[in-house]
Design a protein around this nucleic acid. Structure first.
Length: 423
RNA sequence: GGAGAGAUGGCAGAGUGGUCGAAUGCGGCGGUCUUGAAAACCGUUGAUCUUCACGGAUCCGGGGGUUCGAAUCCCUCUCUCUCCGCCA
């Protein structure tokens, strides 16, 4: 959520920037500014009343001590009026604050200056691309057929046991998964990240902290009896480690990495987009999260981009980087780069990573702050990125590397898989 | 799942109805001393909202209540610990 002070002081700028996200912020901003003024006025009024009550209470205490019972009783009567007034005033104040909070939550994060306006994914800007797009023989087949041919992923079995979008990985398929996870984790460790194994279920407060709740809780699986959500990404537990935390300036940068299963309901998805590994309800992902000083968060974003690019390079996958336009960038993000790999048999680009700077948007929700050298309190910046999400990487590896001898495992991965070919 | 105990400032730990935002110790910061450091001694040291400022308000796990007045009493939730049960 945006800082109130920022909205108050840069009303027009906020409205202007949010237009880039195709969000008409004007009515909401006006409402927020009004509610804020109202809140402060009411707060002052209430504070004055409470100050009077406190004063009287002190006096009553004195009277009792000195044995002046009548005076005490008389003063008590005075407080009754004050109490009624302050009670109704504080109820009114609660209403205003609730309304203000609700309005603030509806306001998306401001897009970074480099974010262009645009309608949707077609308007994203390709800022980088690398690698040759492989040309496959006429007998090349998509990964779901390869999965069946080599019996490494069983989608039907998943449907039987759970439902669509929950595949079984089997034999060398399962070992490939394990190899990729270890490879990604090791690479992150080498880059200075601290490894975590997070809980896969989170409470409501955590969902709120990173922005899944309210609004997007429909995308998460919910365990009603225990009021817990299955995580859609390790970002949620890992970032929420720092909910209500006061850091010191020298703690920056905090670099965490976590492998986790991710669970997404993906309500409303259908068609060829969800074929095979393209979109699953449960998948594996290694996520990197950084907490950084506001002055350095964009350098950090570049560092994270470079890390992700390095992974794809080592896997020898052709990839491109997109800067998301206003219409495609998420509600909570200020700047997002998507990484896409080319899946040669499907002849399409698949998103395998999304690297974002949330600036102070999540921090403000979570009260993630730090003290500077003058022990002034500020909000930290949060960033995260997939490094990487497995299924589409696997899809591209299978399709691009299909040969007559089988699926060729990239060199960098062979020490992890223990085999050279899936055959 | 059952029974009991507890949650106080960065940490440890006092406080069971009124000058308690909270003793004391440790840690942190500043100073005296010292060539420098340590030790010792002196001082200082929470957050949020509001105000130009003085000041005011709120916060002792979360929420609610009793009272003129709550860290302190009551209800409720969460979490931690101990014992029993179950169990990878």
């Amino acid at each position: 959520m945006l800082e109130l002070q920022r909205i108050r002081e840069n009303k027009d700028y906020v409205i202007e920037r949010l237009a880039v996200k195709n969000f008409d912020a004007a009515p909401l901003v006006e409402k927020i500014v009004e509610l804020d003024q109202d809140r402060r006025a009411k707060q002052k009024e209430l504070d004055d009343l409470l100050a009077q009550s406190n004063q009287l209470a002190k006096e009553i205490g004195q009277y009792f001590k000195s044995g002046e019972k009548e005076k005490a009783e008389a003063t008590k009567k005075e407080t009754v009026v004050l109490k009624e007034k302050s009670k109704s005033l504080s109820e009114e104040l609660d209403r205003i604050v609730a309304e203000l909070d609700a309005a603030l939550i509806e306001l998306p994060n401001l897009p970074h200056a480099s974010v262009a306006s645009g309608k949707g994914e077609d308007d994203n800007e390709i800022v980088f691309s690398e690698g040759e797009i492989p040309t496959l023989g006429a007998d090349a087949i998509p990964h779901w057929e390869l999965a069946e041919k080599y019996q490494i992923i069983d989608f039907n079995l998943g449907s039987k046991v759970t439902g669509a979008g929950f595949p079984f990985y089997r034999g060398k398929g399962a070992r490939l998964q394990r190899a990729l996870i270890n490879f990604f984790l090791d690479e992150a460790l080498q880059a200075g990240y601290l490894e975590y194994q997070p809980p896969l279920l989170i409470n409501e407060a955590s969902g709120y902290g990173t922005g899944q709740i309210p609004d997007k809780e429909g995308q998460m699986y919910y365990v009603g009896v225990d009021k817990l959500y299955l995580i859609p990404t390790a970002e949620v537990p890992i970032t929420n480690i720092y909910r209500n935390v006061m850091l010191k300036e020298e703690d920056f940068p905090i670099k965490n990495v976590a492998y986790s299963n991710c669970f997404r309901r993906e309500a409303g998805s259908y068609g060829k987009d969800v074929r095979g590994l393209n979109r699953l309800h449960q998948f594996d992902k290694v996520e990197i999260v950084q907490i950084q000083h506001p002055d350095k968060s964009y350098d950090t974003l570049e560092e994270m981009k470079a890390h992700v690019a390095g992974l794809l390079r080592k896997l020898e996958l052709p990839f491109r980087i997109l800067r998301l336009c206003g219409g495609d960038i998420s509600f909570t993000s200020a700047l997002t780069f998507d990484f896409e790999v080319y899946s040669a048999a499907q002849k399409r680009w698949l998103e395998v990573s999304s690297v974002s700077n949330f600036e102070s948007y999540q921090s403000n929700r979570m009260k993630l702050r730090y003290k500077d050298k003058d022990s002034k309190t500020h909000l930290a910046h949060t960033l995260n990125g997939s490094a990487l999400a497995l299924p589409r990487v696997v899809a591209a590896l299978l399709e691009n590397n299909q040969t007559e001898k089988g699926i060729l495992i990239p060199k960098a991965l062979q020490s992890y898989t223990g085999f050279e070919y899936i055959d």
